[in-house]
Design a protein around this nucleic acid. Structure first.
Lengths: 362, 362
DNA sequence: TGGACTGACCGTAACGGTTCAGAACCACTA
DNA sequence: TAGTGGTTCTGAACCGTTACGGTCAGTCCA
């Protein structure tokens, strides 16, 4: 039996005795040929099992892939489990859908540094979400001659960006704590670099952080407390590599063990804060009477329990990233979008326990 | 100023005075040329800003796109909102990551029937997740000459499939309710077809359902209750188009309004069940003392509150779909995978309220 | 009757690679 | 010296399509 090679535009044209152009037009520009001929073309296509123009060949010719690449260096499951990331993804997906563009998740194995996947992705542009500034995949993306938008981090010169004022937002939150009387606090943050450091993060490490968002949030907290007369280098900052409630809990434990006098735990994400809350509960500490705990992001689980935090519009961020990339945004505007955040006064922050601590500091 | 066209393999070869083959080999088969020449090639590439072989052109030549397409008829963002879909997506993404394949989410606008996106996707295969069997996008996917795997639904002859025994699983759950004494129940299900029908679904509509999973689950409930002597056609089944807790709540309301004697609400998804729980609470009905409510899926939010349900391994399902498509599965086995489910005895099911109802039926 | 216009279709040249079968060269062996 | 084998590089075909600038016959109108 003869194994027929799959039909192509050319073979279809030959069968019909017309030019390839005409067959192409039958699919792409119906107005360029008579309805009758078009009908014949389509019918013959069906008969020969021709599935229509090959998308890859078309992409090559038109220089359009019809898809947006998404790079997240984290473990994929991180993106699917973190509510903030999820909101971003949803927003991005909506923007893509509006524009009829596919969303191509670039496979990144965080173990080996396999940059090839970035080069293999046939996409019209990239959205880079929350990767460290020294990530080799990021470099690979930037080397590709397609437009790129960075969300949150890192900040790259000349590359469009969408984000929030992390520093200012958390400064406002910290000022609120200061106004309540907190002077002796501990900080829980996400990982600051690609290497694992589950423990205290000295000031040098904070400054050298490859994750801009974390760096900015720490700086924002430092801003407020420094002005309030607290020496930042003496404020304990605990870092965790994995972003999970378990991490938040163990970090809180580490802080409370090292300094039981701490009156507030400032966490750089809601997930971490939820973990810290669990640890406080485990220790029989009442929140906020015995301990103040704050987060960052404004995720649903946090809202449900009244977490004091900063709410950021994650869905809008994803949408904005998509629109920026797909050019739905006014091209005369500076190509950097900073979205508004909102301080959420929850039920997990209150004045510190004792009057001494409140008035005279630790 | 001269606008230089972007460098290509050919221009690079010309610059170096070597053949295109050699440049190609420098990237793809380093062993085919001397290290010295390779170094020169790569260096010149850097100097000229050549980003490496164009992925689309390569795909055309090699007939490999390096990506898997995912079709879900719902909005793309649905995948990021529905916990079960999300789990599937995560599993699929993991499988793709393992295989170094990208995951291309096909944008589908459920409003207009824009099948073009399916034809435009440059992928090596498709995973179809939970679409109605008369979906035009499905037809478009099947017309493409690439391997396809269907997850959950629909069942298509000759197409690989991964799923669970929906019918059997929910039969077991229903039997549990029957054992508890429930005879007068209401059912809340997801949409049965592409047309909107927010209301009661008569038996004919149930049988004609284009969503196999829903059809199977209804049939499974019917199996159990029929054997128990309950006439299925008199069991009220309420359908909701949108899959949300709001839908679950309004459907529960509709059922309870139409028959306040109902002792249990069987929902075909946890999301719907969570909504039903909210509605019960709103009405001051205690669950399970006054009303039994069950779900299906085993999502985290349900687990947290102790929902009685059927847990299905959504992550594994996604992984299995990926592996099936990417050929990591023993090719001699039948290409249909049915995963195990587990009946979850939660705290939302109990015997019906009154002794009369329990022993003598409604 | 001739010129402009229109509709329908076609030929050619890319698009940017990969691949395979050699060619050229060299060192080594018999 | 001729043959052998290995390394390194090349030439040409091919992947399937669309963009561009035509051609050609027919129609309309003055």
């Amino acid at each position: 039996m003869h194994v027929r090679r799959p039909a192509t535009l050319a073979s279809l044209a030959a069968e019909l005795g017309v030019s390839r152009t005409t067959v192409s037009n039958a699919y792409n520009r119906p107005d360029q040929l008579s309805p009758e001929l078009r009908r014949r073309v389509l019918e013959t296509a069906r008969r020969l099992g021709y599935p229509g123009p090959d998308p890859v060949a078309r992409s090559l010719r038109t220089r359009k892939a019809g898809a947006v690449g998404l790079l997240l260096t984290e473990n994929l499951s991180y993106a699917f489990r973190d509510p903030a990331a999820l909101g971003f993804l949803e927003g991005l997906a909506l923007a893509c859908e509006d524009a009829g563009q596919g969303l191509h998740l670039v496979p990144v194995n965080p173990e080996r540094e396999d940059v090839a996947a970035v080069h293999r992705a046939g996409v019209d542009g990239f959205v880079v979400y929350s990767v460290p500034d020294d990530d080799p995949h990021l470099a690979a993306v930037l080397s590709r001659p397609v437009p790129t938008v960075v969300a949150d981090q890192p900040i790259v010169d000349g590359v469009d960006r969408v984000g929030i004022d992390d520093r200012g937002a958390i400064t406002a939150l910290a000022q609120r704590l200061i106004a309540l009387g907190h002077r002796r606090v501990g900080v829980v943050c996400m990982r600051l670099a690609r290497d694992r450091n589950d423990g205290f993060a000295p000031v040098e490490r904070q400054h050298a952080a490859h994750f801009h968002v974390q760096r900015a949030r720490l700086a924002g907290i430092a801003d407020a407390f420094t002005i309030a007369g607290v020496e930042w280098s003496r404020v304990p900052v605990v870092e965790r590599f994995d972003h999970s409630t378990a991490s938040g809990a163990s970090a809180a434990a580490q802080l409370l063990d090292s300094d039981p006098q701490v009156t507030a735990l400032v966490c750089t994400s809601d997930i971490l804060a939820l973990g810290a809350l669990a640890e406080a509960k485990r220790r029989g500490l009442r929140v906020p009477q015995d301990l103040t705990i704050t987060g960052f992001d404004g995720i649903p689980d946090g809202e449900r329990i009244g977490l004091t935090t900063v709410r950021q519009p994650v869905l809008e961020k994803g949408k904005a990233a998509g629109k920026l990339l797909l050019g739905t945004v006014d091209p005369t505007r500076p190509r950097e979008i900073t979205l508004e955040t909102e301080l959420v006064t929850g039920a997990t922050a209150a004045p510190p326990r004792t009057a001494e601590e409140r008035w005279f500091g630790p």
